[in-house]
Amino acid sequence: MSLGDGESGQTRTRMPEGGGDLYGGARRGGRRSSSRSLVTVVGVVVLLIAAIAFANRGGGDSGTEGDSADAPKAAATAPSGEKPVDSKAAGIPSGFAHDRQGAESAAANYSVALGSAEMFDKNRRSEIVSTVYAPDVAAARQADLDKAYSNTEFLGKIGLDKNGKAPAGQTFVSRVIPVGTKVTASGADSATVEVWYTSLFGLSGEGSTSPVTESWYTTTYQLKWINNDWKVTDFQQKDGPVPVGRDQQASTADDMTKAVEEYGGFTYAR
């Protein structure tokens, strides 16, 4: 099936779930401290890039093989009314449609998984990586990811112990909230999908030295159709677009912790 067969609308309709461990949410925050480059650039998905950057170099696989010369142009976002997937693999939405909408949905949901606090848990990280990445890519990069996420110097600077755990009485927050997606190139079994999202990263709780902050990024995913689902083969990330922050008072540590614990997440689907 050609990816060009999908609808031309390009958006996310966020469908709520009854539970699960994928989370969403948003908070405005205008803080810009000198530690931003460390926390927000190394944190969330950027940490993945730091871990596997050298592994990506030299591969020469841009993920654009088979891209259609007449790939659909980006369009304004609008809901399609399509139902979200109803299956999961390792707790991550799976079984996406073999079309443009399916590729967009996969990229958005994979962003949530790769940007979650669960990536700081070794066992859970292994499950996420093996589910999201193409088999050969996951096997080649697992060791590099483990090394990055167990870097004690980095963990210490963001307030976590050597096992990636938050101090007693504090909650570690790492969430990605997709805002929109677009397909920039597509073929029968490949797609390049950009995901624009905001992220929350930091420690919530009294005495936190790394309060939860908000950042904005766009990640471009190279996807391939493998074993009846979309899988990531490579990605690149850049800052922004970043909206102008409003003058809103930051929530208390108690309110932030409560929100993180009580607000569940979504399966992202067009």
Rank of each mutant, 00 (worst) to 15 (best):
Q248I: 14
I158Q: 03
V244W: 08
D189L: 01
L160Y: 08
K157V: 07
A168G: 11
S210L: 05
L223C: 09
T198M: 11
S150W: 06
V212R: 04
E127T: 12
G159S: 07
E153S: 13
W225L: 07
Q170G: 06
R246C: 11
R175N: 13
L155Y: 08
N227W: 04
G180R: 10
D229E: 11
T220C: 03
W225K: 02
A134N: 05
V137Q: 00
N227R: 14
L155V: 09
N228D: 15
E194T: 11
S208V: 04
A143D: 11
Q236T: 15
E214H: 15
S199T: 15
T181W: 00
N227V: 08
V179L: 13
W225N: 03
R124H: 11
W196K: 15
N227F: 07
D247G: 11
Q170K: 13
Y197A: 00
G159N: 05
V179C: 11
G205K: 00
T131M: 01
G169T: 08
T213P: 08
T171H: 07
G187N: 03
V132T: 04
E153L: 13
E194K: 10
V132G: 00
T209N: 12
G207P: 03
T218I: 02
R124S: 08
I226Q: 06
T171M: 03
D229R: 02
V232L: 12
Y197M: 00
D239Q: 11
K157I: 03
T192W: 01
S210D: 14
Q249D: 12
R141Y: 04
E194I: 07
N123Y: 05
G207Q: 01
T171R: 10
Q248N: 12
K165I: 07
A188I: 11
L200I: 12
T218N: 00
R246K: 14
G202T: 04
S199R: 15
V129F: 00
Q237I: 13
E206F: 03
T198H: 14
T233I: 14
Y217A: 15
P243H: 07
G187V: 02
K122R: 14
Q142K: 08
Y217K: 15
P211E: 13
G180E: 05
S150D: 13
D146L: 05
A138F: 00
S130D: 09
W230T: 06
D189N: 13
N123I: 08
T131C: 01
K122Y: 01
V244P: 06
S208H: 04
S126L: 06
V242A: 09
E214S: 15
E194D: 13
A148Q: 12
A168C: 09
T171C: 05
Q222V: 06
S251P: 06
K147I: 13
P167Y: 05
V183L: 07
E206M: 06
E127P: 02
L145D: 00
K224A: 14
R175K: 14
Q248V: 14
I226M: 06
V173R: 02
E127D: 13
T181G: 01
G159T: 03
N227A: 15
V244A: 15
